[in-house]
Design a protein around this nucleic acid. Structure first.
Length: 618
DNA sequence: ATAGGGTTAG
């Protein structure tokens, strides 16, 4: 078996084309059985240099070259002993071989080489293997590799530490792990070094240890633009967007020049917290700095304008871009999808192909979402087959979107079959099924799903609770609803507006208006659904004065009522025979475009009939 | 070597 073959003349090593089969080399090293082995009397340094000049790809390509090809090569011979003594313990060569193994995807082989070499210092090779683990999603392996590096107690320089940190950042590592690396950093005296601190900040932010990141940031001696980007984008991604935006302001105050990276991060933060005006101001800055044709900057701008429903502008930026990528399309597609323009989204999907861009799972998920909400089953089914062909059906987001499609299009049987076929521990799927059974008014199945998911160890989330509670409300299972509420409190879950509004609705509908009122008053944000639930609840239980009082309060706060709120208020007026006020609300509802709404119509008939205006009632 | 897009809810 041939291990190393060197083509070309032996006189000039640098011109050699050397092909190494790492796998074969390792096998040989393992067995130590001499193959028909040829090598010239090269020193280990020379051989190492030779290995270094070969592009890795070529080695990979020749990994399984046919033997006839090998014979054609001008092969140089060496002694097996030379290799054994000269190469085996040499870090440089081993490092290179690990690189080659890593590039060839021969993970086991790379592991073995690293393992066998007792005196192997840290080198970039560890990183190559770590990257490979990340690529192959062998997350457990990465952590154990890094642990081994740390355990080896070797001296790590700043570059090495930075590489380790970046490797950690690619996988989900626990905070104890990050802290362990951090301890090393402090020990080696790099705690203010920007090359180390930048990836450390990034890692802390990804591990959701935001305050640790801020601490490091504050202690840093010099900060470069990478530091600022890491902080601003990291804060934005950790739902602390405002702090990110404020940090940007601080940065500008300090006279630090913005970069395209900075702009896309801060624009994204603005988009997330609906600070559209600020986003537009930043757009002006972008033009001023001449970054308006940067791909990432444009993408964040398309996202900004899509989210503030200025799709005309989003489309304009999109069309003026010289280069678009998949994300550009996905952003605009999701913009149109959110607006309910499923046709426009689907057009863009087709257009992607003309630019040779391949739609990914994000694209398909967006499109499935719009098909589901528009009830366009046939398009959704087409997308399903596209997803199968593209091999993205195991993507959890695609699974969720597909199940939602079938549920929303009332394909209950298909949905159920699909659900049974998935076998994942994806909470979204359970939540969607909960909605499905709730829609059918099937409390028994809903409860079954609800308890089964918890038996599987899945925590109900902000989508789960409103779903089960809504079903309880609609079928009148208040006791059960109360049990769920107790559970919410017991688990320490912070109820959001959806949970609160459905609780308010449940209690209000079933006459427990004081309880409903308590939850309502504790709600910090103005939520139209909660207001309506209260107003309707009072009216329903003949507490007309309370109902009207709340209706007036809502209007004073500048909240526009929906049809149910208006209808309830009119009913309340009828109840206390407040004819003029009822008439006023009637004209309001006409202005709001509810003149043909059935619930308002019924309330009006009641109002005019009770006030003796039979003609108007008619 | 730091950046941009995503599934389930009244």
């Amino acid at each position: 078996m041939i291990l190393i073959r060197i083509r070309g003349s032996s006189s000039s090593l640098h011109r050699f084309r050397l092909n190494v089969s790492a796998h074969v080399f390792y096998k040989w090293r393992q067995s130590c059985q001499a193959p028909t082995f040829n090598f010239a009397a090269f020193s280990s340094t020379a051989a190492s240099r030779a290995l270094n000049i070969i592009p890795v790809e070529e080695n990979v390509g020749s990994l399984y070259a046919p033997s006839s090809e090998i014979k054609k090569c001008n092969t140089l011979n060496i002694q097996r002993e030379n290799l054994k003594n000269g190469l085996r313990e040499d870090d440089g060569i081993s490092a290179r071989l690990v690189d080659i193994c890593a590039a060839a995807g021969e993970l086991d082989c790379a592991f073995q080489i690293l393992n066998d070499l007792s005196g192997f210092r840290y080198s970039g090779s560890w990183n190559k293997v770590i990257s490979l683990c990340i690529e192959k999603k062998l997350h457990g392996e990465v952590s154990s590799l890094i642990s081994r590096i740390l355990d080896k107690n070797v001296t790590l320089d700043d570059v090495a530490l930075a590489n380790i940190l970046r490797a950690c950042s690619g996988v989900k590592v626990g905070f104890h792990f990050v802290e362990q690396v951090h301890a090393k950093i402090i020990r080696y005296g790099f705690s203010t070094n920007q090359h180390v601190c930048n990836p450390l900040i990034d890692l802390y932010l990804k591990t959701e240890l935001v305050d640790s990141a801020i601490q490091i940031f504050k202690n840093m001696g010099t900060r470069d633009s990478v530091t600022w980007v890491a902080m601003i984008s990291g804060l934005s991604q950790s739902c602390r967007e405002m702090e990110g935006i404020l940090l940007y302001c601080e940065m500008r105050k300090l006279g630090v020049f913005p970069t395209p990276y900075i702009f896309s991060s801060v624009i994204s933060a603005c988009t997330k917290v609906n600070l559209y005006e600020l986003g537009e101001q930043l757009h002006a800055q972008i033009l001023k700095w001449g970054f308006s044709s940067e791909l990432f900057v444009c993408n964040s701008l398309v996202s900004l304008y899509s989210r503030c429903r200025n799709l005309t502008f989003a489309e304009l930026i999109f069309s003026e871009m010289q280069h678009r990528d998949r994300v550009t399309y996905n952003t605009l597609i999701s913009g149109f999808a959110m607006q309910g323009s499923s046709e426009k989204s689907l057009e863009l999907f087709e257009e992607m192909h003309t630019e040779s861009l391949k739609p990914d799972s994000v694209t398909v998920a967006c499109l499935l979402g719009t098909c589901a909400s528009m009830g366009v089953l046939h398009k959704g089914v087409q997308l399903h087959s596209y997803a199968i062909k593209a091999g993205m059906c195991s993507d959890i987001i695609i699974e969720g979107s597909l199940l939602d499609l079938y549920v929303k299009c009332s394909e209950v049987k298909t949905a159920h079959k699909f659900f049974l076929a998935t076998q994942t521990d994806n909470v979204v799927l359970w939540n969607v099924m909960l909605v499905a059974y709730g829609q059918m008014g099937d409390l028994q199945e809903s409860v079954h799903i609800y308890s089964q998911m918890q038996n599987k160890g899945l925590q109900p989330n902000q989508y789960t609770y409103p779903s089960i509670l809504r079903t309880c409300t609609s079928v009148g299972a208040i006791d059960l609803g109360e049990q769920v509420q107790t559970q919410v409190i017991k688990t320490g879950f912070q109820p959001n507006v959806y949970v609160c509004s459905v609780l308010i609705d449940m209690y209000a509908k079933h006459g427990k208006l004081e309880t409903a009122q308590k939850i309502f008053r504790r709600l910090s944000e103005d939520d139209i659904v909660s207001w309506t639930a209260m107003i309707a609840g009072y009216a329903q239980h003949d507490m007309f004065h309370e109902s009207l009082k709340l209706f007036v309060e809502m209007q004073e706060r500048g909240i526009r009522s929906d049809n149910i709120g208006l209808a309830s208020a009119i009913s309340a007026c009828a109840g206390i025979q407040a004819f003029d006020q009822g008439r006023q609300i009637h004209s309001q509802s006409v202005v709001s475009g509810y003149s043909s709404d059935i619930s308002i119509g019924n309330a009006l008939v009641c109002l005019y009939a009770r006030c003796g205006c039979i003609l108007e009632a008619h």
